[in-house]
């Protein structure tokens, strides 16, 4: 079910990008899209009755139903990349605001 939730979240993000005219809102919907994707990645690795993939005192034997660790490693990287692009997007938003005085794309004069 997490899988479908993730895809719905992604679609929400896409919808946000498609319809919003405000720069900040676009960045936010971009983030929603990324979060949806990250959840989707996590949901790929889930095993019913699986345990967090860490060797600790109790579950110290190999292959006793760990959850798939690889998606979690991938999602770690995806999150950080999301941070990178969002930071850059916000910096650009600040620049755009400095230049056009507004975040609304429609009433940015001379944007062509």
């Amino acid at each position: 079910m997490l899988l479908y939730a993730a895809i719905i979240l992604m679609m929400l993000g896409l919808y946000g990008i498609l319809t919003q005219r405000n720069i900040i809102k676009i960045i936010i919907s971009l983030n929603i899209l990324e979060i949806g994707l990250n959840i989707f990645i996590i949901s790929i690795g889930f095993v019913n009755g699986g345990v967090a993939p860490i060797f600790t005192g109790q579950n110290n034997l190999g292959s006793i139903g760990f959850v798939d660790p690889l998606p979690q490693a991938l999602v770690l990287t995806a999150i950080v990349i999301g941070v990178g692009t969002t930071a850059l997007g916000l910096a650009l938003a600040k620049k755009i605001y400095a230049k056009y005085g507004t975040f609304e794309i429609d009433d940015m004069k001379g944007a062509e």
């Binding site: 860490i54 060797f55 600790t56 110290n60 660790p69 979690q72």
Partner: peptide, 23 residues
């Protein structure tokens, strides 16, 4: 070597947390 917490010595990749091992 069978991977066992606190016992396995000089495994192929050391960290107990498998995610960290991958990362």
């Amino acid at each position: 070597q069978a991977v066992e917490f606190g016992v396995a010595n000089n495994l192929e990749s050391g960290p107990a947390n498998i995610v960290t091992a991958i990362v």
